[in-house]
Design a protein around this nucleic acid. Structure first.
Lengths: 270, 270
DNA sequence: GTGAACCTTCCCACGATGGGAAGGTCAAGC
DNA sequence: GCTTGACCTTCCCATCGTGGGAAGGTTCAC
């Protein structure tokens, strides 16, 4: 019989851990002196403890180790569960390392964030326009329709570029709405599901948006993610027509304060 | 100006996090109403927040992000530091995955633990013996010497197998001591430094110790570790000569209760 | 008997985040 | 102007495994 300190020296497991495992009901001393509460361990417990320590070292939570309790099949199941967890972790870790490499190449100047995009409901206008065309009149058209029905949600407008051919762009303008809205010939009502997106921010004018979205796609590929769907351009802060009563918080008069977010949808797990 | 909720919706960063970053001095609202303490954020802060979020997503602690404070060189240094951390994590993760695979192959029956071995001081006897020879008389010799000088430390004895040739073993017996001891012609005093060891446990007789240490070496190699030095056999619980007054806690009469630990030294980082 | 070395329990800390309670504020509709 | 509901505030607690440390009891050897 060993006191906790001797047993700790024997097994390399700290006395703190042994007390913790005792308290958690995971590994208990063979005998506890009822008057002094001293814990006493036996050498025959060493294999038990080792089994526990080796599972802890695999990163399995104590709770789950305790639930095993000498059942060979459940041990295998637990190990396989842990393996899939570790494989997911390694994927995430590889993403991070790839992101880091990209940032280091660019002297830390690239900020790409992967995050969730909440589901949304929108008034939508699709159009074919020449590259570089002013989209303001089209936005005004949708805004006017939405505000006529008092359905403007407090979120920024979006432009999706579905395709580009021979100097023409197939675009879709989205204005967020917070209630039902009649569709018209030109304006539809669409909903978008929640999604994971990789996002990059552009401060200033719109000259390089296309290049930014190409960079974003390349970034996502290099960090091992799959991209799906066309890029979204989210107008977080922009200059707009005075005629419309837009939420002032999204507006700016200073061209250098224009902020646009570029999003591409990525597969959440991969 | 946005309230915390609106800014949260805009950036995808939860209000909880924004408050936390505020409290940590990492990212603060442009204005706080002094009477209501409401936080108000501006769209011009979005790039700042994004920079922070992208660094957080790389797993850099908030504290360290805060220490950067708009210094391009320190950012690069921080990213490189984080990269080396991540590379170390990936190494550890790959070790774990390899360990898991091995356990799954063997239906979870192998318990190998990597842990630290504290430094030690020992009375040491080296000898050439035939394979399978009874080591008890040699142990008794060293024990007797140690106990004559009242230097017995409360730890189990060890046998190191330095080499095996033509059915002969070059072994070294170690008895732990806790004070200085005169050496003799046969018995030396040695110290061993702290080391990382991979360890496996054998319950029962000594028939398979050699195979266990070979398994241990193979395990260490397969999990990407480098092995150095000969195997140690630590007699955690054994049957011994009655003549000697050995610490009773290491003794047993029941052969099935014999417990031996096999150690090989591994390189800590790799 | 006294001191050193051990043991006990209890509380706190880490790190980033979320949950939830109790209470104050804002804005819209009446 | 009042009510109501959505929003905001601060504060406390939880995670998870481990260690640090305080305050106090036990053991053992001199």
């Amino acid at each position: 019989m060993f006191t906790i300190g001797a047993f700790s020296a024997l097994t390399g497991v700290s006395a703190k851990r042994l007390r913790h495992y005792d308290g958690a009901g995971l590994f208990q001393p063979v005998w506890v002196d009822p008057t002094t509460r001293y814990r006493y361990y036996s050498a025959t417990q060493i294999p038990d403890l080792r089994r526990i320590v080796s599972l802890v070292n695999l990163g399995i939570p104590l709770q789950r180790i305790q639930n095993l309790r000498s059942d060979g099949r459940s041990l295998t199941r637990e190990l396989e569960r842990r393996r899939s967890e570790l494989e997911r972790e390694r994927l995430a870790l590889d993403h991070r390392l790839a992101e880091l490499e990209i940032r280091l190449e660019r002297s830390g100047e690239l900020d790409v964030v992967v995050r969730g995009r909440p589901p949304g409901r929108w008034a939508s206008l699709r159009a074919e326009v020449p590259a570089g065309a002013d989209l303001a009149p089209l936005f005004v058209e949708v805004e006017a329709h939405v505000q006529r029905h008092d359905a403007r949600a407090s979120a920024p407008p979006v432009c999706i570029v579905h395709g580009a051919k021979r100097g023409n762009r197939s675009i879709e303008l989205l204005i967020p709405i917070d209630r039902a809205l009649p569709a018209t010939e030109r304006i539809a009502v669409v909903t978008t599901p929640a999604a994971a997106v990789a996002s990059s921010l552009v401060v200033g004018t719109y000259d390089h948006l296309t290049r930014v979205s190409a960079n974003l796609r390349a970034w996502a590929r290099r960090t091992g993610r799959r991209v799906s769907g066309p890029p979204w351009y989210v107008y977080l802060r922009f200059g707009a027509d005075e005629e419309l009563q837009l939420p002032a918080q999204y507006l700016t008069d200073d061209e250098t304060e224009v902020v646009t977010e570029v999003l591409v949808e990525v597969q959440p797990a991969g």
